[in-house]
């Protein structure tokens, strides 16, 4: 009996330690985000206070009100930036996924000359830091008139995302047994039908997760966007954050408020497709 009890005690102790460990880890991950949310709701004095004020004593929506207010009184064209971000991210994601599906499928299913070399080349492009390309890109875009356009940003993000989506989607198609498409062909499908009615739905979760990664990359990208966009015609939300800096001051509260607005769509999207995301990441489950 006694040993039984001590065993139970030890198990409970382990459980508590586990919980505390998880709490600490999650704190490290979440506190910067929570700090931003908190700061967006409180006066600048409190944000700047030293030592930091952890428990807010005055929460209000002043920063949001100011942000949506008139330009010149701390206002920022939030809706325009939001629209730019949305157009650029969604379009570039859709294109990157279509190319990624075609490329990933080809890599997963077909043998062709130079396959390994092409694949490695695609991966190597990921090793080049995006900023390093900003100057050459700027010069080329300036020549062809793509500076400060949606198209310019879309092309940039497609190029950035395609190697990744190909790699990810290749992995997912590899896990779909070949025999599924063959069975579909025997059941009367054309090659094309077999893809859309069987292979695509089976790999859909994986493709959805590739889509989210591509979307978030475009949505959050700052370095290139800050170089290639100039005005409200194409500035995205991350670039818009810079509107809160002026020569001598930084409007931290406003910046945090815009950052919160930026995070919300990403969070909503992630929640909407999280079922797919998890299924995509634990893909083995659909085999059978």
């Amino acid at each position: 009996m006694a040993s039984n009890q001590s065993h139970r005690m030890r198990r409970r102790g382990l459980k508590i330690a586990h919980f505390i460990g998880l709490f600490l880890a999650m704190s490290v991950i979440c506190i910067p985000g929570l700090w931003i949310v908190l700061n967006s709701f409180r006066p600048t004095v409190e944000i700047m206070a030293k030592p930091p004020v952890w428990i807010p004593n005055d929460l209000n929506l002043d920063h949001y009100r100011a942000m949506f207010g008139a330009v010149g009184e701390g206002g920022v064209p939030v809706l325009t930036y939001f629209r730019n971000s949305l157009i650029i991210s969604v379009t570039s994601t859709v294109i990157a996924i279509l190319i990624g599906m075609a490329g990933g499928y080809a890599f997963a299913r077909y043998r062709f000359k130079g396959k390994a070399a092409i694949f490695i080349a695609l991966m190597v492009t990921r090793a080049v830091p995006g900023v390093a390309l900003s100057l050459p890109l700027f010069i080329i875009y300036a020549r062809v008139g793509l500076i400060d356009t949606h198209i310019g940003m879309i092309v940039t993000y497609v190029a950035m995302n395609v190697p990744f989506t190909i790699w990810l989607i290749d992995g997912f198609f590899r896990q779909v047994p070949r025999e599924l498409a063959e069975a579909a062909e025997i059941d009367g499908c054309t090659r094309w039908q077999a893809f859309w009615r069987v292979e695509f739905p089976v790999a859909r979760s994986g493709i959805a997760s590739a889509g989210i990664f591509a979307f978030l990359t475009s949505w959050n990208e700052y370095a290139l966007a800050s170089q290639l966009t100039r005005s409200v015609t194409s500035k995205t939300m991350p670039v818009g954050l810079l509107d809160f800096t002026s020569e001598f001051t930084l409007n931290w509260g406003g910046m945090c408020a815009l950052a919160v607005l930026m995070i919300i769509p990403a969070l909503v999207l992630t929640f909407l497709v999280q079922k797919h995301l998890i299924a995509g990441l634990t893909f083995g489950g659909v085999k059978g």
Partner: peptide, 18 residues
């Protein structure tokens, strides 16, 4: 295959998982 009027049972069954 679709024009041969055959059907096939595969070793791993190849059932459509979705």
């Amino acid at each position: 295959p679709r024009d041969r009027n055959i059907s096939m049972v595969f070793q791993n069954y190849a059932l459509y998982p979705h």
